[in-house]
Design a protein around this nucleic acid. Sequence first.
RNA 1: GCCGCCGUGGCGAAAUUGGUAUACGCGUAGCACUCAAAAUGCUAUGACCGUAAGGUCUUGUGGGUUCGAGUCCCUCCGGCGGCACCA
Length: 1211
Amino acid sequence: MQKYDPKKVEKKWQQQWEEGRVFEVSEDPPQEKKFYALIEFPYPSGAGLHVGHPRPFTAMDVISRKRRMEGYNVLYPIGFDAFGLPTENYAIKTGRPPAEVTAENIATFTRQLKALGFSFDWSRAVDTTDPKYYRWTQWIFLQFFKHGLAYKKNQPINWCPSCKIGLANEEVVNGACERCGYAPVEKRNKEQWMLAITKYADKLLAGLKEVDYIPQARVQQENWIGRSEGAVVRFSVIPAPAGIQSGMIVEVFTTRPDTLFGATYMVLAPEHELVKRLKSRILNAAEVGAYLEQVNKKTEQERTAEGREKTGVELKGIKAINPVNNEAIPVWIADYVLASYGTGAIMAVPAHDQRDWEFASKYHLPIKQVVAAHFIEPVHPPQPGKKTKRRQTVHAIVRRKSDGKILMLQWKGAMWEGREPRTFIIGGTEAGEDPVVSAEREIKEETGYRNLRFVKDLGLEVHTEYHAAHKDENRYAEIRVLHFELNSDEQDTVSAAEMEKHTPVWIEPEEVGNFINVVDGPFIWNWFNHGGQAYTPDGISINSDFLTGLSTPEAKAKMIAWLEEQGIGKRQVNYKLRDWVFSRQRYWGEPIPLVYCENCAQRKPKILYIHGIYGYSEENWIPWFRKEMKKRGYEVLAPNLPNNVHPSLDKWLKTLADLPIGKDESLIVVGHSLGGPAACQFVLKHSAQIERLILISPTGDRQEAINWKNLRDAGCDEESIECIKKFNAANQSLDKVRNLAKETIIYLSEDDPFVPLSVTDNYSPLRAKVKIFKNKGHFNERAGILELPEILDEFPDVQSFNSGWIPLPEDKLPLELPKVAKYQPTDTGESPLAAMTEWVKTTCPRCGGPARRETDTMPNWAGSSWYFLRYCDPHNNKEFASMKKLEYWMGRNTVIPNEREESLSQSPNGQRSFPLAPARGQDDSTGGGVDWYNGGMEHTVLHLLYSRFWNQFLYDLGLVPTREPYKKRTSHGLILGPDGEKMSKSRGNVVNPDEMVEQYGADALRMYIMFMGPFDQPVAWDTNGVKGVKRFLEKVWAIQNNNKFDREGEDGWIFDDQLKLVHKLIRKITTDIDEMKFNTAIAKMMEFINEISSNSVISRGVWKIFLKLLSPFAPHIADELWNSEPFFENNGSLASEKWPIVDEKNLYEERMTIVIQVNGKVRARQQVGTNLDEEIIKRNALSDDRVQKWLEGKAPKKIIYVKGRLVSIVV
RNA sequence: GCCGCCGUGGCGAAAUUGGUAUACGCGUAGCACUCAAAAUGCUAUGACCGUAAGGUCUUGUGGGUUCGAGUCCCUCCGGCGGCACCA
């Protein structure tokens, strides 16, 4: 017998797979069944692979190998995410070029990965640092830039004053620099490139609904995006600061507009711009100045280290007016209000916000309750149809000073049928009566105790509804809770009438919670014990004018409606998500392909206005528009176009082409009505940079896109109509227009007589933002539109356009990283590239003048944000990937009908905007993406969110076929070192896979990694476990080499038991792999081997099935045995064999074990026939001696039979 | 503090989703093979009582629902992960 020598076997098969190109896949010709399995590509560190890396790789390899055998065309790609800090830091230390080091590391990783026998398609391997790859990373960045989603902004960076280097967030440990001797990190302001991911916040949130992610990943993304719904409310501030007219406004954001009546003060973030502007009016300017300085000095570290005790200072002399009741409230600044969230200012409602409560308590600010807790007694709920009596009541918590016990009432009466209430001392308050007085009266009347001291009002109103059985009426109790102390037991006599109703009892404090049996009791008791806090849950509004009596959701809605009506606030959604800082002042990253041109920065966009048929230019709102735009610094071109009555697109375009617009100028193009198509075609033909394309009631060429009847009724003759039709029909190639304009906006009116809302279908390739109005008609003089202030949002001050940053032409990409002499960042915090004067100095690709290059590079996240797309078409040098190949591997979205109609009908008051639905059958869709993506929990927030953002952006540009990149996402648990700690060089607990392969073989290593524990949970490494799996593989090897196999051909003998065994195994392995329960799958294989090895003769059919089931886990040994003498004459890898299918008839059991329980304890087991019926099984069970013994002659009360499992007898 | 997850032998862990708790593996002990060791094979292995047959207890704690709870509900204790003054 040959010995099992994994080294020999594994090398042999790895070579065969490679030479036979077994795992290289093609989309040509497209096979129907495809499967795209994705793992997070590794960072090729200098340390090489450690034993944790292969866990996700092996898992997806098992799944991929199984799918392949199930007939899928499986893409299982691999690559390297090779830009990164460690390599850069190594370069700084040693001076070795990162590219060189990276190449070596990739070689090591490749060798190690290949030794583990993964079924990767190596021909598709990508490397993010390869210029052929990052050319497209840069290209995608340029698309962001061209669509206005990349912009420069002053942002603080982490700066280590000792290393003189900007730090990544992950290099900052507890506010100190990780690189050097932990010097404290400073913040430095620097202009940084930002990606406007916040513009996709709602889309990223919505997309989570259509994908199959592990719940944790979905929840973490949701939290990170942090959507909250509320309102912005405008408070005016008095006195107005000098030089500014009165009525100066501060906006606050709140999620609880229902508590506006409880806003007793206002807090501004210290950085709030108003603080500076108000300076001259602040009476305690010195104090405020000192506070600001103190806040400024505080580092992040100190802020968190202080235990977050809230500090603040009042702006004396300043008041804010609460717009709901015109009360003047104090204004404070405090650093618990963040400048970066909401509006940087809050209205403080201390009664219903814990932070405000703490602050108000500390600084003795008024606390006003405006929401009452609300309960409905579940045992005796109010009954419909019965009258409801409202009663003011008090609950008195009376604590005896001597022993701390609590005085309570045990009721006897019939207030509630079937249950005697146990409560605090309760009583009614008469109209106008002080609650303290009524409580004292009630205590005396009900219990006789009189030596009372009032301690405090708990400051909480509770509303409880119940049905009072003795009066058969519903009660609505408004309860105040008062705390008393009893100083001595002196007692007056209690009236007989009271004694009949209830008995006073003294209860130990620990028992109060159990004693009390009314619904609000535990809540009140808990509140009493916690002392002061804010009541934050929902409830019923009180002390709130027109909101009083409403539930919290009702009150919120009503308040928002009221605010909007009054024009002092509006509904608003806020996100925690911030824009993405995309600049790194580093060398080892993708260069940002932009140059700065002083000359171009001077050039400002012009506005081109294109009128419609009959030339409305000077007849409706255009004069107003011209004036407004001049104010903003624009030059407006509004030509009169020829043949207004019978227009032709060609002639119009010719006239437009003659306008004084330079080829390299930037434009905002506005087209109204027939001018809409003209504007689109102009944009397509002219080479100007289009900042914005604004279409107002544009005509379309579909039947339903114009209301011809109304047009005729309005006096349009047939010849004009023909012209319009031709004109519209010539409006082609809109999908190209989309990528020329940075932003496209369409204005429509619900009551437009000529252009209905359905015109959006026509313009769908533009993927424009659509704004829908009421009562604007056709936006012309007929509708009385002489001004259109809504449009002003699209025209910021001209100065804000064209910062001077000019993109490199796309055919000049990639912009390669130049070789530098030193990798150390410069003293000023700029990237080492900034030191290369000859590289930085360049010419402007737009005007040819002198310009300088951007020296920032992109963050590590860039390359990994789209690598899954490149895998689909890795060698394409014309596009980042072809649509055809993407559609094959990623699939495409399928339509959900009516989604657009829904968003339309939701439109509450006109001004809402929503993304335009592109051509039918392409959007409003779901279903595509990488079939299965597995990765680490540490990437479920950033990497996943960033790559979803990129994919959604590319989808909006029409460049990828699916909105969501990943259909399904799972996560693996970390593999820890043998000591249970995270593996790391510094801890010295790293296990090297090379050694494991050397000693036990790749198959044993793979199997152990899958066997260690549940895939999604962290597990500590235990080399002994590898031994155990190796033993299993040796056993498998030995069985094939030592046992007899039947010689009668496949299944010639009926090996019933063996067949049953193996078919059960097929079922188990098949489902377990799909559910990633690899550990139990392997356990079952071990059981199978333990059982089958006791047979003297083994069915070769059964054994072949087993080898197939084993092959995804241990592919080398499985292929070797499959091809081994003396039993099999197979040829080639199991990868091209078929996965076995369960045959139900082989699973049939003739006998089953029935467990018999007596009073819930197992007392006997019986083997019975499978098809016996229930009565017989029960009878058998009862007659069993062991059962009889436990019955002790008693008759069973109940017998339960669970099919195929057990009989449970109760006596 | 908030959100989410998890507590089962000496260890990693199973448990058909409410129905035989401790499968499978590791470790340990004994035996066999060996001059010996390693490797391998066989046997035993939750705890307690008992020579045994057998019995009792047992899934972090305490309670509840149920004929029946590791699994469902509530309380507390312990651990892990994420967010963290987000109005």
